[in-house]
Amino acid sequence: MTVAGVDIGSNTAKAVIMDNGDILATSLIMTGHQSRLAGRRALDLALREAGLEEGDIALIVATGYGRLTTDFTDQKVTEITCHAKGAHSVQPEARTVIDLGGQDSKVIAVGENGKVVDFVMNDKCAAGTGRFLEVMAAALEIELDNMGEVSLESESPASISSVCTVFAESEVVSRVAEGTNKMDIVAGIHQAIASRIYAMTVRVPFKEKVIMTGGVARNIGVVRALEKRLETSLVVPEMPQHMGALGAAIIAEERAGA
């Protein structure tokens, strides 16, 4: 039986097609301003990669912020439940999921069965999210994808005291004006994020193993900074951004089989 999970996030839309527990195809595109179309396109891309048509799919589960506006999906589940499910499938021993996405950061406590036990989310403020990093990358004129590597070279991270995106940006601009090294500023930004996520993580409270999902997990600088704060190593799956879509596909499989 073939199923699909589609995760329409604030930044990227992802799809995963599964057949009896095996991943057949995945896709990832920018969401842009029309999230409904983005979900559709992500699914179409994955279908093409798998050489399938929509009619071949038994059940499609949507997740992410754009889930409610889709009309081509059968069921809708929140990304909190889906990330827990996806992360559990790649790392069954994980009891804590740190998901840092485009506009949300979440820390999820997961049970042995992959179900959500508890979760904490950032407040309305976007500090610590992918969007926060994007703004900082723009202020520093460096590529988002390079931030992680760049920060690892820092020996004395700059102090970025604010976790508010707007205030932190002006702090970064001040550091630039003072002539602080880019690598130190970036490392400081990562520490600020780690500090904020740390506060959320201990509130859950966290249990090992800890797995990190979402786009920010691709930033090795944030991962290292978090590991230092939490005093534990983080598991980063091969495709951290796809964990929500994967979870949605697994839920589709469970429900289609039920």
Binding site: Y65, L68, I80, V116
Partner: peptide
Amino acid sequence: EADMTDSRAYSEAQVRDRVEAFIES
């Protein structure tokens, strides 16, 4: 997180997400 009358301190999508995830659990 919200405010009793100041809608500038409220994000509908975030709250909907939390409520649904809470009930799903």
